[in-house]
Design a protein around this nucleic acid. Structure first.
Lengths: 150, 150
DNA sequence: TATTGTTATACTCTATAACTATA
DNA sequence: TATAGTTATAGAGTATAACAATA
């Protein structure tokens, strides 16, 4: 016997069980950690993956637009984008004197193809755990939470 | 006119719109940021708040149990707990030579009371945006995602 | 010998202010 | 004068390894 207080496994009583924000965060962490592990073979982190997807869907976009869309400060985009350009996945073409038009290179596009396959497999696990009805309701609720916050 | 591509506000097309993990993370961030702002008057960060709640519900628990329950490495609990003890919210009583029994001080208990009021107000905003049926389904789905991850 | 808490440390993420060069 | 991108930097958050005291 390991513990006096509790035969099963000394689990603490959890007062956050009914707290929406807490459960949301823990669920999000579970998915993020699964995703990060699955992206490792592609040598991508989750942020880099979302940036590539965004550029792929919006060729010619600016760095600041991506930052705004992802909720990242523009200052923090600099090293992220530099890494993607350096590894030959993103092309940065001068648009005017202060803006760059971003697009995927051939290697970047191939990476996005592989990436989407990984994402599909990643999501399949969790989608099937929910069922399609609960899944649709969940996605809907998440949008409400994200937009109705203030 | 600000932009050539899009009259409205130059919003990028969002390929992550249907991605569960992404929406989960963004919704979680929205709630976390609202919560952090509401906790500021109490001089608590979200982590500290959850630690206080956990100690309040599990008087006599060990530091390592809290770390495990919250998914925090025990090494990172040290400065967190030290701060809570230093500010007079948590009492650390020697249990045996290597463990401490944690409990709330009177000030800590009062803080938790105020904290629960803040949490209730915080959640009310988001709960009412969803409706009680969607809310119950959401909480259920979050638990499934968190436990069925592997 | 395994466990609890600790130290030291490094790496990532995030936030702010100030700068440049262009528009 | 405002904007896009950049630099530098500071603060959180998180991860690992190694250690002391104790069980």
């Amino acid at each position: 016997m390991k513990n006096v207080r509790n035969d099963t496994a000394s689990r603490l009583k959890d007062p956050m069980e009914m707290r929406l924000g807490y459960q949301l965060r823990r669920a999000s962490m579970a998915l993020m950690s699964d995703l990060a592990a699955r992206l490792e073979p592609l040598e991508l982190r989750p942020v880099e993956a979302t940036i590539l997807l965004l550029i792929g869907s919006n060729p010619g976009c600016r760095q600041g637009e991506i930052a705004e869309s992802l909720g990242i400060k523009k200052a923090n985009m600099v090293p992220l984008m530099a890494a993607l350009v350096d590894s030959g996945l993103v092309d940065r073409a001068r648009a005017d004197g202060r803006t760059h038009a971003l697009s995927l290179t051939a290697r970047g596009a191939a990476k996005v193809t592989a990436l989407n396959r990984v994402l599909d497999r990643h999501e399949a696990v969790f989608r099937s755990a929910l069922g399609s009805k609960a899944l649709a309701a969940l996605l809907q609720s998440l949008v409400v939470l994200r937009n109705g916050e203030r």
